[in-house]
Computed example of a mutant assay.
Amino acid sequence: MIDIALVGIGKIALDQHVPALKSSDAWNLAATVSRSGKVKGVESHADFDAFLKARPDIRVISLCLPPVPRFDYAEAALRAGRHVMLEKPPGATLSECEKLAELAQSQRLTLYATWHSRAAAMVPAAKEWLADKSLKRLQVTWKEDVRRWHPGQDWIWEPGGLGVFDPGINALSILTEILPDKLHLKNATLEVPENKQGPIAAALDFVHPHGAKVSADFDWRQEDDQIWQIEAVTDAGALLLDEGGGRMFIDGQEHSASAAALSGEYPRLYARMAELLATGACDTDFEPMRHVADAFLLGHRKIVDPFYD
């Protein structure tokens, strides 16, 4: 088994990373680093630099910190000769992400910029189905309740926290994975609460190289049923990815996932990290991040009512 340290013991770490690691035959959660969070029965450290000095034997680091401080931790880990796995988004800026990729390559270390929604059960099947189809129209609808999924996480509204693009980038990670053609953003509208820095909703329009209409609608104010859908109309039928990529319908008929896909998103991420380590490779696709950066560059800001958790 491979020893790994988990850095940043918050909600996502406890809900997803810890169970995935504890259920894996490939990984041993050997230590955690956090100012306040701990995992029962696992060695804990409060200071990352002190941890790196104390445990040179732990060669793999998984970073679950918010995006703004993540770069400093990732750079320190790589310079200390450790392989690094990044929670999404991989950083606060594209420049940070690209610098980490260059550093990992120069150090001959593995860097894995994860996109957990790409590991959803039906994403590979959707990609395969769309590969030889002519796309006519695609609509992303990603609407959820921020109070339910990110309670009290003030950092998510600050610069670098992405606002509604924190979940929206999950949709973009699926979109850029399943489409055979590369898109670029044409325009965007960002709805920003008057008491926040980050947007609470966003509407995006993309340019498709063959003229298909591609758009996305993100909203953090969805109080009833949560909606995570991608609908694609092609020359050979219509595809619906529902429940964040967990279910797929072709012309209304549901297709089932393989047993491996049903194991869960985060177990599949850690299986991928083990593969990268075995081959000495990196996986650093920053395309979803690029679309978010373009949205902030091109987006028309519309100030809306204040929002309170």
Rank of each mutant, 00 (worst) to 15 (best):
I303G: 05
A5D: 02
G244M: 01
D145I: 08
I169A: 03
L277H: 09
A101I: 08
L52K: 06
L103A: 02
R247D: 09
E275D: 08
A203S: 14
D3G: 13
C64H: 15
R108Q: 14
D49P: 14
N170M: 09
V146Y: 14
V68A: 05
P124W: 00
A201D: 02
L175S: 01
V140N: 02
I303S: 07
A274P: 13
A260W: 13
E231S: 14
K143H: 08
A238H: 09
K182H: 11
H17D: 03
G280R: 03
R290M: 01
P288M: 00
A293K: 10
D305M: 12
I2C: 13
Y73H: 09
P90V: 05
D235A: 03
A77T: 07
G152N: 03
M85F: 13
P151H: 04
Q105C: 13
V123D: 00
T114D: 09
P67L: 01
Q253M: 11
D25H: 15
F165D: 00
E194P: 15
I227Q: 02
V304R: 04
E275Y: 07
K53I: 06
A261G: 10
I230T: 03
H210E: 14
A278F: 10
A203P: 14
Q16M: 15
I156L: 15
S95P: 10
E275P: 09
F165C: 01
W149D: 10
R79F: 06
G8V: 02
S34I: 04
